[in-house]
Design a protein around this nucleic acid. Structure first.
Lengths: 146, 146
DNA sequence: TCGATTTTGCAAATTATTTGCAATATTCGC
DNA sequence: GCGAATATTGCAAATAATTTGCAAAATCGA
């Protein structure tokens, strides 16, 4: 787990990429807001009219390829993005079907159950990563439903 | 776990929906092919020029709302669809990063670990459903990689 | 600082999916 | 089985998220 915006600058530099206004701004937002954001939301959060939405998309794509950012798909039509596991503890999401709020959970049953090993033994498939999203009702919405 | 195309006919009828060529054909494909298919693939599999792709989308949307079909998103751009848990044993997918092949796994660490209860106790969030997809290399591709 | 290279803004293209509407199919009562 | 009432479909056009071409602007390395 590495910290600081300057780390990303070095990382990009090391890979031959420039440290630009758009890239730096997108990373600032992602390191600041602790939940997965849509490209559109990130763009709005930049509050910099000089930066175009396309550049946000381009930055996100680059960061994804460098394993700095992780794409989260919750079936909403638009994808969300958050810092990858290397820069944030591994976690999953609790998505409220009623209000849409997204909470994190640290518990990971894939690791806990040793599922990866089980699958490799049984099927020969080598699991490298997984996506786990949990849907239901958050506490406030559960209360309202009564 | 109910079987047979006629069951679906009764189900649709019971909900006030018609049993149409498009709906019947889409369900036939989904009950026949044991892996999640894209709308486009389902449409091609119908081999019926009288049925329009829009009708496939409309049928899928209806089936989703009736819990007959389940949407699967693997980050490919297009969604995939398969029979819902009520008509097929609960399972997850092993998606090969190299060749794209999709295998099923019956093992479910969310159920096994009692994660739902754990989360409810800890956070008050009531989990109703979950999405778990596993990515990596299938056995053939793992061999080729060597 | 300067030129070479990379990146960006902007507008237009792309792709999956949805929708309006007139035409067609299905259903239901007789 | 028949025909009216209703639901669904085909088709073409609309959407919405994301990508891309290209000339202009920013960044980098010497």
């Amino acid at each position: 787990m590495r910290h600081g915006i300057t780390h990303f600058k070095d990382l990009l530099g090391g890979e031959g990429y420039s440290w630009t206004r758009a890239r730096s701004a997108v990373l600032t937002v992602l390191t600041t807001v602790p939940r997965p954001l849509r490209a559109e939301e990130i763009h709005r959060a930049l509050r910099d009219p000089r930066i175009n939405l396309s550049s946000v998309y381009r930055a996100l794509r680059l960061f994804e390829s460098l394993n700095v950012v992780h794409r989260v798909e919750l079936g909403e039509g638009a994808a969300r993005y958050e810092l990858a596991d290397d820069y944030r503890d591994h976690h999953h999401h609790l998505v409220c079907d009623a209000c849409g709020r997204i909470e994190d959970v640290a518990a990971c049953p894939v690791e806990a159950a040793g599922l990866t090993r089980h699958i490799r033994k049984r099927t020969g498939f080598a699991v490298r990563s997984h996506v786990l999203e949990l849907f239901g009702l958050c506490r406030p919405c559960r209360r309202d439903a009564r």
